[in-house]
Simulated assay, not measured.
Amino acid sequence: MAITVTPISERFGAEISGVDISRPLDEATKAEIRAAQDKWGVTVWRQTGLDDASHVAFSRIFGHVELAPRHKGKPPRFSEPELFDASNVDADGNIIDNDLRRLINAGNRLWHIDSSYMEVRSAQALLLCHSAPPMPAPTWFADARSAWDDLPQSMKDRIEGLTARHCYFYSRMKAGYPTTEEELDAMPHAHQPVVLEHKASGRRTLYLGNHARDIIGLSREEGRALIDELNAWMTQDKYLISVDYQPGDMSIWDNLAGAHRAGEFDDTAWARDMRRTTVREAGVEAADDHFSTMFNNSKRKAEEEAGIEAGEEAGVYTSDTV
């Protein structure tokens, strides 16, 4: 079954139609879908008909689907353990009213790459809308491959071979979450190349975003200035697309080819139920529950003072949400 690909912009993003992904697919169709994802970086699917189980099943055509992080004493909202909760509602569908969680989620409105704070990188993310507010609440995407292509050669030479340290709570601190640099020093970090080889397309890409805290070998001030400059370059209007959702719509993005951020909406007034699967970078071995391990090692003073288990009420276990 041939799929229909409608580009959103010249080099980045496409809407896909012509195939029912709620049903099992033949190998040729799976290969077409993977090829479109590798080429365009972001694909958008309307009225998918997916439920939780078929969402996870479809995700498996891209590779190993990660387990979402869990914490003690709080049952998951979903029956499928691979579903990351990217919503602002509780198990009964009520809007969650929690200031710490709201500060955590504010970090999602900064440009970031999902799981760049993990040594095991994430590739595809599949975000499915179950309910949406009446006004637009989009996800914005930045084309990091084209941003690399267009960099001046002098900047390419400058950043070639550099390594950045990424930390989940650095982006949260930037968004206002009460964390100190000293607390961050004790938290897990991941070492990532500033310039990444995107093997599936044969292109190169910038791999930064606001989880990137500093650059090895540079002073903190110089490293952060360089990160800010490259993030600003990557998120120029000419590299951006946005995707809005109605129930049943899904976006898939390649975290090895771009960055993204959540759009603004009043999350105190409107419920938004979004569920995401995360596919591990191909060819990488790791423990099945490594997200839970990372978050359990990231206790913050703010949560200790509030008597909160790591990630429980602050919404940490939603990971990167959009």
Score class of each variant (00 low, 15 high):
49 G>I: 12
55 H>Q: 08
60 R>D: 03
52 D>H: 08
72 K>E: 14
43 T>V: 15
65 V>R: 03
69 P>D: 07
58 F>T: 04
65 V>I: 12
79 S>M: 15
74 K>P: 00
48 T>P: 08
39 K>H: 15
40 W>M: 02
64 H>N: 10
65 V>H: 07
69 P>R: 02
79 S>F: 08
54 S>R: 07
53 A>R: 09
74 K>W: 03
64 H>T: 09
67 L>H: 04
68 A>K: 06
44 V>H: 06
78 F>R: 15
66 E>F: 00
61 I>F: 03
48 T>S: 15
39 K>M: 05
39 K>L: 07
49 G>F: 15
61 I>S: 04
47 Q>G: 14
45 W>Y: 15
69 P>L: 06
66 E>G: 06
57 A>K: 07
53 A>G: 12
67 L>G: 04
50 L>A: 00
44 V>Q: 05
77 R>T: 01
71 H>W: 03
40 W>R: 04
56 V>Q: 00
51 D>I: 02
54 S>F: 02
61 I>Y: 06
38 D>P: 02
50 L>F: 00
66 E>T: 11
78 F>I: 10
63 G>T: 08
42 V>Y: 04
49 G>H: 08
58 F>Q: 01
53 A>D: 12
39 K>F: 09
46 R>C: 06
60 R>C: 01
72 K>P: 15
44 V>R: 05
71 H>C: 13
66 E>Y: 04
52 D>S: 13
76 P>G: 12
72 K>A: 14
41 G>N: 09
73 G>N: 05
47 Q>W: 05
78 F>E: 14
67 L>T: 03
41 G>L: 14
64 H>Q: 14
60 R>L: 03
43 T>H: 11
71 H>A: 09
62 F>D: 00
70 R>S: 09
66 E>I: 02
48 T>F: 06
70 R>T: 03
62 F>I: 04
69 P>V: 03
77 R>P: 03
65 V>F: 08
73 G>I: 08
67 L>C: 08
71 H>N: 10
75 P>H: 09
63 G>D: 10
50 L>W: 00
39 K>Q: 07
74 K>L: 10
78 F>P: 04
52 D>G: 07
74 K>V: 15
76 P>I: 05
62 F>N: 02
40 W>I: 06
62 F>T: 00
68 A>I: 06
75 P>E: 15
72 K>Y: 12
62 F>P: 01
69 P>S: 05
43 T>G: 11
50 L>R: 01
60 R>N: 05
66 E>Q: 08
68 A>S: 13
64 H>K: 09
71 H>Q: 15
72 K>H: 10
42 V>H: 02
73 G>H: 04
65 V>N: 09
49 G>W: 11
65 V>G: 06
40 W>P: 02
77 R>A: 10
74 K>N: 08
70 R>K: 08
55 H>A: 03
73 G>C: 11
71 H>T: 11
54 S>Q: 07
59 S>G: 14
44 V>P: 08
76 P>Q: 14
49 G>D: 13
77 R>N: 13
56 V>N: 04
68 A>F: 06
75 P>N: 13
79 S>K: 15
46 R>V: 05
79 S>R: 13
47 Q>Y: 05
79 S>I: 09
52 D>I: 01
50 L>Y: 04
70 R>Y: 01
76 P>R: 11
